[in-house]
Simulated scan of single mutants.
Amino acid sequence: MLNRTSVDGITNPQIGGFICTYPGCTAQPFQTQYLLNSHANVHSTNRPHYCPVKGCSRSEGGKGFKRKNEMIRHGLIHDYPGYICPFCPDSEHKYPRPDNLQRHVRVRHADKDKDDPRLREVLSQRPEGPNRGRRRRGGTS
């Protein structure tokens, strides 16, 4: 492992010193023990985090989530189910962002005709709001 410490070893401590030891795992080293522990869930069948909304297929007794942040992100569909798959029966797949819906359609409905107007509409949707889904990186511009 690359030693990224400063001359005194204190001012710039080693970055990414927490390594997954699961056989065959190729994940990059993690900066904290917490992140390594969170990553370890991907190697487990445990899904300890459940949606608090009763009746949801991801609530207690249902599928659940391996990571807490996935459960929190999932909660957005209950607060703002703005993008609904036009191909799924009973509007069962709802997404808070258009890119989530677009990924779902590309994976689950790859058999759809590219000229289908519903498919074209889904793939042309863009995020709403002032930032329109774009993240800004560093600095002020």
Rank of each mutant, 00 (worst) to 15 (best):
T45W: 03
N3D: 14
L123C: 11
K66V: 06
R120K: 15
D8R: 12
I19F: 13
G129W: 04
L35G: 05
R103T: 11
M71F: 04
D90N: 12
H43F: 08
L76D: 02
P81D: 11
H39R: 02
Q31Y: 00
V122N: 07
V7Q: 13
G133M: 09
P81H: 04
R126P: 00
G17Y: 01
P130Q: 07
Q14I: 15
N46I: 07
S38T: 15
G9E: 09
R134W: 06
P29C: 08
D116Q: 07
G75Q: 02
R118A: 14
Q31G: 09
I19A: 09
R47C: 05
G16H: 08
P86V: 14
Y22S: 11
C56L: 03
G61E: 04
P23F: 10
R118K: 15
P29Y: 06
P86H: 13
I72H: 08
D113R: 08
Y34Q: 13
Y83P: 01
M71R: 09
R73P: 00
E121D: 13
I10K: 13
M71A: 02
H43R: 11
N37D: 13
V122W: 01
H93K: 11
R4D: 08
P48W: 09
R135Q: 12
S91R: 10
D116F: 10
N3A: 11
Y95L: 05
K63W: 01
S124P: 05
V7N: 12
C88S: 12
G138S: 15
K114R: 14
R134M: 11
E128I: 02
E121F: 12
E121P: 02
G17T: 07
Y22G: 04
R137C: 14
N37Q: 12
N69T: 06
R118Y: 06
R97P: 00
P48C: 13
I84H: 01
L35M: 10
R103P: 00
G61P: 05
P96F: 02
Q33Y: 03
N69I: 03
G82H: 06
Q14A: 13
R67S: 01
D99K: 08
Q125C: 08
C20F: 07
K66C: 00
R108K: 15
I72W: 00
P96M: 09
Q125D: 01
L35I: 00
G61C: 10
R106A: 12
N37E: 10
I15E: 14
G61V: 05
P86S: 14
N41Q: 12
F87V: 00
D90M: 02
H93R: 08
D115C: 01
H93Y: 06
R108G: 05
H43C: 04
L101K: 01
Y95T: 00
D116E: 06
R126F: 00
F30G: 03
F87L: 09
K68D: 09
G61T: 05
G75W: 01
K94P: 02
A40C: 03
C51G: 02
I15K: 15
P52G: 08
D8K: 10
G139L: 14
G133Y: 04
D115I: 02
P13T: 10
R118D: 11
R120H: 03
G82Q: 05
F65V: 00
H43Y: 05
S44N: 08
G64R: 02
